[in-house]
Design a protein around this nucleic acid. Structure first.
Lengths: 202, 202
DNA sequence: GTAACTATATATAATCG
DNA sequence: TCGATTATATATAGTTA
């Protein structure tokens, strides 16, 4: 945005990521407040930093806005009426269920299924999304390929007698294609500072 | 903010309030998306316009963010003890949320994001999926296009009669009307604001 | 209603203290 | 690690078509 325009992708450097987060978060909340005031809109904004800190804002009451959101989204699916008690507190569940449906449909459409009834405009948008995806996938593929080739060359040059294999995911990627002989490119690049408090399934 | 600085208070004029709402809403959602991407933050944003239209965005899953927010704030409030039913409901919620996470990841990868760490094999699979999707989307697009053209031609033929090659005394409203009519079967219009969902109140 | 088009106001990345 | 500064990139109020 300044001095130099930045690309919108995850900032690698942890420090500058935190600085940017702090600045932009303030800006975002300010914009939200302004929109609410100027246009009489009801707004809820929830932000979790990557370290798990919570920031939130609501023009009225967080619960109220969420409840309203819940009511609108609930109408889109047939929820089996759980119990009167539950109805009040299952907003997250209802929303999640609806989200699964939405995302499932979107996935199918990206795969070229369930396209009937879509307008030309929507089809064009899909096409654009797919074009973008394929271009980035191809780019990444070349990068990975180059990296593997380089690693292979290094290995041949220095040491010819070492084989290393690490059980990664349960995916049996032994059946790789020709160029993929030494699967050196599957290191799990995980995050560093995530005191994530999200719940896990048992 | 431009031409002249405005005061942050409710805009009286209804028209300009709506225009401002539309512009600023887009800006706000864009900022939210950018913050999420740049800083790896989890964000939920809910906006109700003064007319009751809903717009929302969530970096991952709305239900998940709300649930996480609830958990954090729950500690501050005295909650009536969770009943057995609620616990069951939470696990259902957790399952749904996990599904949302999985589908979200897959969607992002199809869009060419979050590709790091994927093996060549997985990238090839993605590419194949995308190729298939785009081919079917293109096919459907041509079909829809042909259909609309055909409908248009039929309409013009019956309205104007046949072999009226040169007597172009017919007014343009016919063309306009038929054009609109042919697309009347299009699905309900959505607000094109990325992943925002909009609804109307009764 | 809306789709550009500016001229400015803001936001903010990089830098400095 | 911060706050302050500054040079640019963005956002957008007012306007026009």
């Amino acid at each position: 945005m300044v001095r130099q325009r930045i690309e919108i992708k995850k900032i690698d450097n942890v420090t500058s990521r935190q600085v940017t987060f702090s600045k932009r978060r303030r800006g975002l909340f300010k914009k939200a407040r302004e929109l609410s005031t100027l246009c009489d809109a009801e707004i809820a904004l929830i932000v979790f930093s990557s370290t798990g800190r919570l920031f939130d804002y609501s023009s009225s009451s967080m619960g109220q806005v969420i409840e309203r959101h819940n009511q609108q989204t609930e109408n889109l699916i047939q929820l089996n009426q759980p119990s009167l008690e539950l109805q009040l507190d299952n907003s997250a569940s209802a929303i999640a269920i609806k989200e699964v449906e939405e995302k499932t449909l979107e996935l199918r459409r990206l795969r070229g299924e369930e396209l009937h009834g879509l307008s030309l405009e929507e089809l064009k948008k899909l096409e654009k999304t797919l074009e973008g995806g394929i271009s980035r996938v191809l780019k990444t593929k070349s990068e990975v390929f180059e990296k593997e080739i380089a690693a292979l060359k290094r290995k041949m040059g220095s040491d010819i007698g070492q084989t290393q294999e690490q059980g990664q995911s349960s995916d049996q990627s032994i059946i790789t294609t020709t160029t993929n002989g030494s699967s050196a490119a599957a290191p799990p690049p995980r995050d560093y500072d995530s005191s994530d408090t999200s719940l896990k399934l048992g």
